[in-house]
Amino acid sequence: MPSLKDVKVKINGVKKTKQITKAMNMVASAKLRNAQNRIERFRPYAEKFYEMLGDLAAGADPSVHPLLETREEVKTVGILVATSDRGLCGSFNTNINQAARKLAEEKKAEGKAVKLYCVGKKGRDFFRRRGYDIALAFGDKMNSFDFSLANQLGLEVIGAYMRGELDEVHLVFGEFISVARQVPRTLGILPMQGSAEKGDDSGNKAEYIYEPSVEGLLAELLPRFIKVQIYRGLLDTSCSEHAARMASMDNATRNCDDMIGALTLQYNKARQAAITKELMDIVGGAEALKG
């Protein structure tokens, strides 16, 4: 039976932990709101972009561009993993890392080499510990990034792809479905699946004047599309991270409450036992004096 003082110390400790988890929960919810706003702001750009690309791809032969062409022999696979920089967000990072590792192992089993591009410390550390070939890693970026990060990553993978160092590129990120649900998602970004995201043709507008040619425009648009996809993955990951942290901190706070309840009960029991014992001693002493 722990002494009264021990229990008291423990209760205070748990209370302090609770303060921290509660504060983290609130910080995460504020950051989540921020991240959601960014997705909202990104949406008009993305939608317009898909529309433009759809219009163009409808009127052009997509096989002309090297980014669209599926290579017959795939030797090296690039995997872009977007995770968070910090932990304490439940199984969020683990899930993404496992999904990426599974993909990497599958590709390796097929006899292909795997190169990793990691954003976020958690993914980088995970794969570094396991001795994977990491081509590029960014840490401490997830807290504040803008399109230039996606731009940099995009240029990197497109460059490697065009040089033939990569024959396939996949993106693994935490898709944000709702505040309560985030799942790891794997997306093949290179070679591009032709007209996968085609806008509906109902708008059948008048003929456009293209400058430069349709092919020239596609050559400009396609690399950007890769960056748009990467940016979306990054935004989703950061949103998911904060949502996951919110949920896990909420859980932690509740667990703290439970622990405090149990410990207080224990404390009261111990206190009562001590009082009873003291009374017994006094009564016993008085009896002895009488005799």
Binding site: M52, D55, L56, K205, A206, E207, Y208, I209, Y210, E211, P212, G216, L217, E220, L221
Partner: peptide, 19 residues
Amino acid sequence: PGIEGEFGIMANHVPFLSA
């Protein structure tokens, strides 16, 4: 600033797409 030189647009321009 179009990729092939500057262009100007006024109201009711024909549909046009440029880098």
